[in-house]
């Protein structure tokens, strides 16, 4: 179990105030809440895009919040599935893998497996990511998160642009990834799929835990 404590962050009129919450070490922790409740702000704080001095994130005897963004080795999917618009599909994946010092001989076969699992054609590899549809971008963002062999997954609305079938495929892939690699995941979603294997659930409302 990783424990996050003392989140006290103010931006404008909004205040995120969470004394403590836990993320399961294995499996998926679901984070739910209405729009504007502070979920994405919480993700930013955990990654390190925003800073909160009092916050501590204890995991495996490490104070994870002391690590730099790069050192945390997080697999991140931002809301909307942000990918690099000037790179092709394959270049985005290659970038994510190279950043974690993986060789193509290692991640190449993995990529093919992910493409198959997510029902993507190999021809998509040459497409510029700016030309992809919203659903394709989101699946690309998911693959980039997995390919880097992260220690932790942070997924902000990873299925919002997907139709029902692609969503089920992505959920199945996520379930499989967390089980096989033993990587904990914090997933934010409005619309929980019944097939998502949730180990724990957290609800936020108006910047506070419910």
């Amino acid at each position: 179990m990783s424990v996050v404590k003392n989140i006290n962050y103010k931006v404008g009129n909004f205040e995120l105030n969470i004394p403590r919450f836990e993320i399961v070490n294995k499996g998926i922790t679901l984070l739910v809440g209405e729009s504007g409740s502070g979920k994405s702000t919480l993700v930013d704080l955990l990654v390190g895009f925003r800073s909160c001095r009092e916050m501590s994130w204890q995991w495996n005897e490490l104070n994870y919040s002391d690590l730099s963004i790069e050192e945390k080795q997080i697999g991140l999917v931002l809301q909307g599935g942000f990918v690099f618009p000037h790179l092709t599909f394959k270049e985005c994946v290659s970038f994510a893998a190279t950043a974690r010092k993986r060789k193509e001989s290692e991640w190449g076969p993995e990529l093919n497996n992910y493409l198959q699992a997510l029902h993507l054609q190999p021809s998509i590899l040459k497409q510029k990511s700016s030309k992809l549809s919203g659903g394709e971008r989101q699946r690309l963002a998911l693959i980039c998160a997995f390919i880097g062999q992260p220690k932790f997954l942070l997924l902000d609305e990873p299925f919002s642009a997907l139709d029902h079938e692609n969503k089920e495929r992505s959920v199945k892939l996520l379930n499989n990834f967390t089980e096989v690699h033993g990587v904990p995941a914090l997933v934010i979603t409005h619309n929980q799929s019944s097939s998502l294997k949730v180990s724990s659930r957290i609800e936020i409302s108006h910047g506070k835990l419910v």
Binding site: V47, F49, I69, E70, E71, K72, Q73, I74, L76, L78, F82, V83, F84, F95, A96, T98, A99, R100, C144, G148
Partner: peptide, 9 residues
């Protein structure tokens, strides 16, 4: 931001 989260140097 995303590239830093990917641990790119």
């Amino acid at each position: 931001k995303v590239s830093r989260a990917m641990s790119a140097n």
